[in-house]
């Protein structure tokens, strides 16, 4: 069942899209893959922007997070206060994971799509037939050449393994850290090196076509990071200004939490910003009337 859905909704469209792009781009599967990667980044752009908002929001409440960390020694209570702080600031702690989680089904589907579009045996070519739409344009594109820049995109390639590691590392380096306490920062430092090694390890057994996707995806990610966060080592300032919620102050135990100030929202005066302000002032997602009902 899940396999059928996976095929119908993800794998087959991906296979056919790759075939179309490859045929459009001079029959080169490598160029088709690059175009596919850029297309995926464009489609997921709203998610990426949302991730950026969430990251900025996370940054803005870090002082409060630190305060909570210092204040509460009981992990359960600390967790509760932390979640409360996130809720009050309109931050979804999992919001930053959206684009990252989306990468996994895409990667899994791409792994199989590459193996199917570039068949390694007559049986595999015969099996590819079952995944192709009956459009003449697609049918006439088969088979697609598996070589790109001298690489067999069906096989792992050591150059691609190195590039996967380097670009993953570079992307991690250009990503803004939201952690303020030492422990989290240390963990992030470790991940900055573990992630490239882990993906390089995967790339050792992946078709180099999948690695090519990862490399291009990382390069686009690096570009996006530099444009939005800037890059201090090269003295590049952020080119996009993103609206962030004002930092929420720490709530004293037993007291109503202070509303998160949003001067920029007030200044902007848009209805959505005013709504956000009202919601925040009356508690998360509640109006004054709702509060009255709750009290009664």
């Amino acid at each position: 069942m899940i396999g059928d859905l996976f095929g119908l909704l993800l794998l087959d469209p991906m296979i056919n899209l790759l075939v179309i792009l490859s045929r459009l781009l001079f029959g080169s599967f490598g160029l088709g893959l690059i175009a596919f990667t850029i297309l995926i980044r464009l489609i997921t752009f709203p998610l990426t922007v949302r991730q950026l908002h969430q990251t900025r929001a996370m940054q803005s409440i870090q002082p409060r997070v630190q305060e909570i960390n210092k204040k509460y020694s009981d992990p359960k209570r600390r967790q509760e206060e932390m979640m409360k702080a996130y809720r009050e600031s309109g931050v979804n702690p999992l919001g930053c994971l959206g684009p990252m989680l989306l990468q996994f089904p895409i990667l899994i589907a791409l792994f199989w799509a590459v193996r199917r579009v570039l068949p390694e045996s007559p049986e595999a070519l015969s099996a590819l037939h079952d995944h192709l739409y009956s459009w003449t344009y697609i049918q006439q594109a088969i088979p697609i050449s598996e070589t790109f820049l001298g690489m067999d995109l069906r096989e792992p390639n050591i150059l691609m393994v190195v590039l996967v590691a380097l670009t993953t590392w570079a992307q991690t380096k250009t990503t803004v850290s939201v952690a303020t306490d030492e422990r989290a920062r240390a963990q992030q430092q470790m991940m900055a090196y573990m992630m490239p090694l882990m993906f390089a390890f995967f790339a050792l057994s992946f078709p180099s076509g999948v690695s090519l996707y990862w490399v291009v995806n990382s390069l686009v990610g690096i570009g996006f990071n530099i444009v939005t966060y800037g890059f201090a080592p090269l003295k590049i300032a952020p080119m996009i200004k993103v609206r962030t919620p004002a930092p929420a102050t720490a709530a004293a135990p037993g007291k109503q939490p202070q509303p998160a100030a949003a001067p920029d929202a007030r200044a902007a005066g848009t209805s959505s910003n005013i709504d956000r302000e009202l919601r925040t002032a009356n508690g998360p997602g509640r109006s004054k009337r709702q509060n009255r009902r709750r009290r009664s």
Partner: peptide, 9 residues
């Protein structure tokens, strides 16, 4: 909690 200090998935 490697990404967001203190938040567990």
């Amino acid at each position: 909690d490697w990404y967001h200090g203190g938040v567990k998935l």
